[in-house]
Simulated assay, not measured.
Amino acid sequence: MDRRTLRALAAGMVLSALVMLTVDHFTSKSTGTADQDQDSDLVTQIRKERDELQASIDQWENNSAQQVSGVADHTETEIMTRFILVIEPGMTSPEISEQLVQKDIITDANALNNYLADQGLTNNIQTGEYDLNSTQSIEEIAALITRQ
């Protein structure tokens, strides 16, 4: 076999492989919707579990707050509030700060929003779960939820 014959044979094999891949691609049924359904079910299950955990945390916080308020010592003490913040893709800093205000982690949503904007961190907010409490400063919270 000379070079030309070998090259022609290789080119024919490559061409036939491409034809077979093209035919297979257009004639096989796609299983993408099944994968998407499984992903959707998994996301729904994870969100349900997250909501259940958040409800347990809220109940625990309420119980502990009631126990602390029932103590005979009437001195005024600050109760630390704890919250697991879940940042999902597409959430904005106003949405995040409103959640933190609602859960008594911070008192002023604008303060967090302004801090993130002033520091140029609004585009650096990371998705994930963050364990926050009311004793943390806005700077500490911003450092936790952003990549720097």
Results as ranks from 00 to 15, higher is better:
residue 73 D to K: 09
residue 34 A to S: 13
residue 129 E to L: 06
residue 127 T to Q: 04
residue 64 S to Q: 15
residue 60 W to G: 09
residue 114 N to H: 14
residue 72 A to G: 07
residue 114 N to Q: 15
residue 119 Q to S: 13
residue 104 D to R: 08
residue 67 Q to M: 14
residue 119 Q to C: 07
residue 80 M to S: 07
residue 64 S to E: 15
residue 72 A to R: 05
residue 59 Q to W: 05
residue 98 E to G: 05
residue 46 I to K: 02
residue 121 L to W: 02
residue 87 I to A: 00
residue 81 T to R: 10
residue 77 T to H: 10
residue 67 Q to W: 12
residue 120 G to H: 05
residue 108 D to G: 07
residue 107 T to C: 06
residue 79 I to G: 02
residue 62 N to A: 15
residue 75 T to K: 11
residue 56 S to N: 09
residue 19 V to P: 01
residue 127 T to S: 03
residue 66 Q to K: 14
residue 125 I to W: 00
residue 111 A to L: 13
residue 39 D to C: 02
residue 37 D to E: 15
residue 55 A to S: 13
residue 83 F to P: 00
residue 100 L to E: 02
residue 94 P to V: 04
residue 28 S to L: 13
residue 67 Q to L: 15
residue 89 P to M: 00
residue 73 D to L: 06
residue 32 G to K: 11
residue 75 T to N: 11
residue 23 V to G: 08
residue 85 L to K: 01
residue 69 S to F: 09
residue 51 D to Y: 05
residue 118 D to E: 15
residue 30 S to K: 10
residue 105 I to A: 02
residue 27 T to W: 13
residue 44 T to Q: 13
residue 36 Q to E: 13
residue 33 T to N: 12
residue 20 M to I: 13
residue 24 D to T: 10
residue 58 D to S: 10
residue 39 D to K: 03
residue 62 N to K: 15
residue 114 N to Y: 12
residue 34 A to Y: 11
residue 51 D to R: 08
residue 20 M to P: 00
residue 124 N to I: 01
residue 109 A to T: 04
residue 35 D to S: 06
residue 19 V to A: 13
residue 63 N to I: 10
residue 81 T to A: 08
residue 128 G to Q: 02
residue 56 S to E: 11
residue 114 N to F: 09
residue 44 T to I: 10
residue 76 E to C: 06
residue 64 S to A: 14
residue 97 S to D: 01
residue 121 L to M: 09
residue 114 N to I: 13
residue 63 N to Y: 09
residue 71 V to H: 10
residue 41 D to H: 06
residue 50 R to D: 09
residue 124 N to T: 04
residue 59 Q to R: 12
residue 51 D to E: 10
residue 72 A to N: 10
residue 69 S to D: 15
residue 94 P to L: 05
residue 122 T to M: 06
residue 39 D to S: 03
residue 90 G to C: 01
residue 23 V to T: 13
residue 99 Q to R: 13
residue 89 P to E: 03
residue 112 L to I: 07
residue 103 K to L: 03
residue 61 E to V: 14
residue 47 R to C: 05
residue 100 L to M: 09
residue 73 D to C: 08
residue 99 Q to P: 00
residue 68 V to Q: 14
residue 57 I to S: 04
residue 35 D to P: 00
residue 63 N to G: 08
residue 60 W to A: 12
residue 129 E to A: 11
residue 118 D to K: 14
residue 69 S to V: 07
residue 83 F to D: 00
residue 72 A to I: 03
residue 108 D to P: 03
residue 102 Q to W: 04
residue 38 Q to I: 13
residue 78 E to P: 00
residue 45 Q to L: 08
residue 109 A to Y: 03
residue 87 I to R: 00
residue 42 L to S: 08
residue 127 T to Y: 00
residue 53 L to G: 05
residue 57 I to C: 02
residue 56 S to W: 04
residue 34 A to N: 10
residue 78 E to V: 10
residue 57 I to Q: 06
residue 87 I to C: 00
residue 97 S to L: 01
residue 126 Q to V: 05
residue 120 G to D: 07
residue 36 Q to L: 14
residue 40 S to R: 12
residue 81 T to P: 00
residue 80 M to I: 10
residue 78 E to Q: 07
residue 73 D to Q: 07
residue 41 D to M: 08
residue 60 W to T: 09
residue 108 D to C: 05
